[in-house]
Design a protein around this nucleic acid. Sequence first.
DNA 1: TATATTGTACTAAAAGTATAGTACAAGTAG
DNA 2: CTACTTGTACTATACTTTTAGTACAATATA
Lengths: 139, 139
Amino acid sequence: MAETGVKKLEFSLDPKSGVPFYKQIILQVEMAIADGRLTKGEQLPTVRSLAVDLRINPNTVGRAYNEMEIRGIVNTQQGTGTFISGKEVQLDAVERERVLSGITKTFISKAGSYGFTLDEIINYLTDLKSENERGGSNQ
Amino acid sequence: MAETGVKKLEFSLDPKSGVPFYKQIILQVEMAIADGRLTKGEQLPTVRSLAVDLRINPNTVGRAYNEMEIRGIVNTQQGTGTFISGKEVQLDAVERERVLSGITKTFISKAGSYGFTLDEIINYLTDLKSENERGGSNQ
DNA sequence: TATATTGTACTAAAAGTATAGTACAAGTAG
DNA sequence: CTACTTGTACTATACTTTTAGTACAATATA
């Protein structure tokens, strides 16, 4: 049981949030990819170990991994483990801008319905970035 | 533009979030009270009208209103409507943070799946902010 | 009074989530 | 080969959420 190359990500579940556990796991993996804490080829915790860690059923972790496999975020091999696939959607500059604009608008209006301002959002994201740079720098 | 007396709050539901609709409604009302967009005596949309608006079952809206009634943040009168009671909403910073964290992380994940990095997102939002400040009136 | 509007109550059904427990399949390492 | 680790599949159960549909109760208004 040597500490292999498995990335030590700090997963955390919030039962009060109402968001299903398996979705929270997916979100946290995607987040880690988005901000560079996880990169292509890195291994995720095994189904069983993460289940023990989070004190949830292995089936629930398996469901999260399975969905990510389908989405192409990770690829899994029985007997070996689950690894970040490093897949990225290829878009040209124009389309990229359009996509970012679209999802951002949706997000801002949603945040607005909860009363958050653009300033608040930016501040929050900036803090998030700082935290990740401190805690999650790759060697 | 003769509005009725009913406060026009922009509710938005996210089916993909996993958070129950009735909880999303409650949260959005609470947030609106907390930051002053809703104040004592103002009327919420009727159960049926909000249900039509959000395209969900009236029972679901009713459940949200009923829970808020129990918590004392609204009072309801049959035949009249549902009104903000003016009770202080105990929305501590923790809860507020939880909400912002939830919707923001979902957004980052989605953006990440298109290959956008956290840096890119922050830059884009910052530019947006600049444009808004130049262009016009922020509340 | 009568009528419309408001919130409420109830049953039944469908869908999603998480659990326990068991078993199997595929790769790795000895 | 065997033994171990990995992901996967399956049944069954429990709970929550949401829906449809119907009906009722309380208030406002004419």
